[in-house]
Write a protein that binds this DNA or RNA. Structure first.
Length: 718
DNA sequence: AGGTCGGATCTTTTT
DNA sequence: GATCCGACCT
């Protein structure tokens, strides 16, 4: 008997997928069913069977992290160098292609990638340039509009204004923004994809080249692809190429940023020779957890259909905690974490997942108080920090004077007496003469139509940049950056900032110099100058938020950022109507389904223990709310749940219909669900007094919060 | 020009 | 409650 390291470790379905001879394969991979594994083994199988060389394989993911993990796992499994293989994010790969063929793509060789903050600035400027009021045309809305169109693959001329004036104006802004980008050689994130797609469409020779090279294409998280990404893949693969797509329609949680689950159906239509494989065996969670996940997601009508199962144990019941308020919820989470830790568990095996990032604060406070180490995911990333972007903007402007977005960012940072008046003047000249802001500044100095003070300030700024640029081509990257930061005056500027904030910023600037020193460019990006490569790195990989990934600490994150991760114990907090599902999704059935998928993602992160909680009262935006428990709780099978109250364990019973008359008022408990014959169902929030005089505060679902005299209220326990 | 104060607003996030 | 943005004051 021979052993095959690639196929042997797989189950039957996984093997079907990995060794499929169909040119295109769509793998419907449930949560925890070995999705990445199948991708990695498929690549190894291509290589082992001689169907492909590393050079001919393209593997696409959504995040840098996922790409890095996939590359590492492929290298580990195949135990051979896979240097020629392209493993990267959609954006990363599109960027590589555009760099290689900038001119064919209609871009200058030194085109710059702008992030969404830069993009917003350019759009704001475009709006002002059209003499529209920013009040009536908020730049944020226009940005959303433009990116949504680009995600759909639409240029301004493709968008129909439907005779609608507002729409027509947005299209105007889109057009003006495109012109501004063209002038400055700027490319935003969506543009990378759109441009790479258009490049292939307009240059058949190039497309042929890439088709010949990448005969084997693999995609992860296929349910998250948007229209342009799908079109791009379809263009590359054509009718005959090999496409291996892995995804889970039940984990599609990004439709609000253009992702289209329908792409899974399109795949089936567009590639008639495809094979469909379902991975339903779960290796992550206990049966109880899976039962909950399955029961919940079964409430979504539009699914491709999938039922997770496990050969493993039933496991502990799911704990459901009805907290008195958000503080109590946080305290409860801390108690449970403490218990876990004291029984020998690691904190890093635990995650607290919430719907909105605003919820993290109360949890953080409680964790600090309980002296439990934690780490919050998301939030500010290194290269997104203002001070980092300021320093890089100096570098960009020193390297290329035509970079208007860099110019605008730092022309008066730190403040040097160049105000809005002067900058407006520059914008006017730039627009009239169709030149960059830098050139406009030169002209303005000749016209001498501004007060001498402003002209002097402008001259000093320009001298500063000129002096900075002296070393651009000779100095090593880190020294160059050091030189730029030192002469920019940013350090002094931040020193003046009060509090710890300024010190943090200065630390970050030295961190940036260190990052530049350690920077090694992507070996694939051969002839790109080091500086350009570094700037691209900063734009495309925003960096981790915190570095302390190695200390043992509880992981705090939103449900969205939890996708793809797993934890021994998961806390799902804030399951309340209005919060989760979120208010803004409540009225739309389609969005509601996405909220439910989000909940499904949360549940399926848990390996051994799941704890769900909600609060009867929550402080939100500075006011107190009394939400109802989330409908998602009702959708879970009662048999898998165990409800915990302040006073101890109570068997969870819902909708049994047996209501018990309360003889003594003090039989009530905080958080108890009760029925009143006029006000209907509600929850006990407060109690005061004793015996005949005791009063109870109840939050009724229909009538809100009321104080009642317990002796006369005739409350019944549900 | 630049800082300060008041008002509106308030998912989710990667590139 | 916190932050972001715009108006207003110095």
């Amino acid at each position: 008997m021979t052993t095959d390291p690639i196929l042997d470790p797989l189950n039957d379905r996984q093997r079907d997928a990995v060794a499929s001879v169909a040119p295109q394969v769509l793998v419907l991979a449930g949560a925890g069913s070995g999705k990445t594994r199948v991708l990695v083994h498929r690549v190894a199988w291509y290589l082992a069977t001689g169907q492909a060389s590393p050079h001919g394989v393209l593997a696409v993911t959504f995040t840098n992290k996922a790409a890095a993990e996939m590359r590492a796992r492929i290298e580990h499994l195949t135990a051979r160098p896979i240097g020629g293989m392209w493993v990267g994010t959609f954006h990363n790969i599109a960027h590589r292609i555009l760099r290689a063929h900038a001119r064919d793509a209609g871009l200058p060789d030194n085109f710059q990638i702008i992030d969404s903050e830069d993009q917003l600035r350019v759009i704001r400027r475009a709006i002002r340039g059209l003499n529209l009021s920013d009040e009536q045309w908020p730049a944020k809305d226009a940005q959303w509009f433009i990116n949504a169109r680009k995600d759909e693959g639409q240029r301004p001329q493709h968008v129909d204004d439907l005779g609608n004036g507002a729409l027509a104006t947005l299209i105007e802004i889109y057009r003006a923004y495109e012109e501004a980008c063209a002038r400055g050689g700027l490319v935003d994130f969506a543009e990378l994809l759109l441009r790479a797609h258009d490049l292939w469409q307009s240059t058949p020779g190039l497309l042929r080249h890439y088709r010949d090279r990448f005969w084997h294409v693999l995609v992860d998280e296929f349910q998250d692809t948007n229209a342009i990404q799908y079109a791009w893949l379809k263009t590359l693969v054509g009718d005959d190429g090999n496409l291996f797509a892995v995804g889970d329609d039940d984990q599609s949680i990004y439709s609000w940023r253009g992702a289209r689950v329908e792409n899974m159906q399109l795949f089936r239509r567009d590639f008639p020779r495809h094979e469909l494989v379902r991975l339903e065996q779960n290796y992550r969670s206990t049966a109880n957890i899976l039962n909950c996940a399955n029961a919940l997601i079964a409430n979504n009508p539009s699914r491709l259909g999938k039922q997770l199962w496990t050969a493993g144990v039933k496991g502990e019941p799911i704990t459901l905690y009805a907290a008195y308020n958000d503080l109590d919820e946080a305290r409860f989470v801390c108690d449970r974490l403490r218990q876990w830790f004291e029984h020998g568990g690691r904190l890093s095996e635990c995650a607290v997942l919430y719907r909105t990032s605003a919820q993290s604060r109360v949890l953080e406070d409680a964790l600090r108080q309980a002296d439990l180490a934690y780490r919050v995911y998301g939030g500010f990333r290194f290269y997104e920090r203002a001070e980092i972007k300021d320093a890089l903007a100096y570098l960009r402007l020193a390297a290329g004077r035509g970079d208007d977005s860099a110019f605008e960012r730092i022309v008066n940072t730190p403040p040097r007496g160049i105000g809005e008046r002067t900058i407006d003047e520059l914008r006017g000249i730039a627009k009239r003469d169709n030149v960059s802001l830098w050139q406009a500044a030169h002209r303005l100095r000749e016209y001498k139509e501004l007060p001498a003070r402003a002209l002097g300030a402008l001259a000093r700024f320009m001298d500063l940049i000129d002096r900075m640029s002296v070393g651009v081509s000779e100095l090593p990257l880190a020294e160059l950056l050091e030189h730029v930061i030192a002469s920019s005056g940013l350090i002094d500027h931040y020193q003046k900032e009060k509090g710890e904030r300024g010190l943090d910023r200065i630390d970050n600037l030295s961190e940036l110099i260190a990052a530049a020193r350690d920077f090694t460019p992507d070996p694939e990006a051969e002839q790109v100058p080091l500086l350009a490569a570094f700037l691209t790195h900063a734009a495309l990989e925003s960096g981790e938020g915190q570095a302390d990934a190695f200390t043992d600490c509880v992981q705090l994150m939103t449900l969205h950022s939890a996708k793809g991760l797993e934890f021994a114990q998961v806390f799902l907090v804030g399951l309340e109507e209005g919060l989760f599902p979120h208010q803004r999704s409540a009225s739309d059935p389609v969005q509601l389904e996405e909220e439910r998928r989000l909940c499904y993602v949360g549940i399926t992160r848990a390996m051994r223990k799941l704890v769900i909680s909600y609060a009867e009262s929550r402080r939100l935006h500075g006011a107190d709310y009394h939400p109802k428990p989330s409908r998602f709780i009702r959708e879970l099978p009662a048999a898998a749940l165990e409800e915990v109250r302040l006073s101890g364990r109570v068997q969870f019973a819902r909708g049994s219909g047996v209501a018990e008359r309360i003889g003594e008022p003090y039989a009530l408990k905080l958080g108890q669900r009760v029925v009143h014959k006029m006000f209907g169902e509600g929850v006990v929030l407060h109690m005061e007094g004793a015996g005949e005089h005791s009063r109870v505060q109840v939050n009724f679902e229909s009538d809100g919060v009321k104080w009642l005299v317990a002796a006369y209220a005739g409350l019944e326990v549900v």
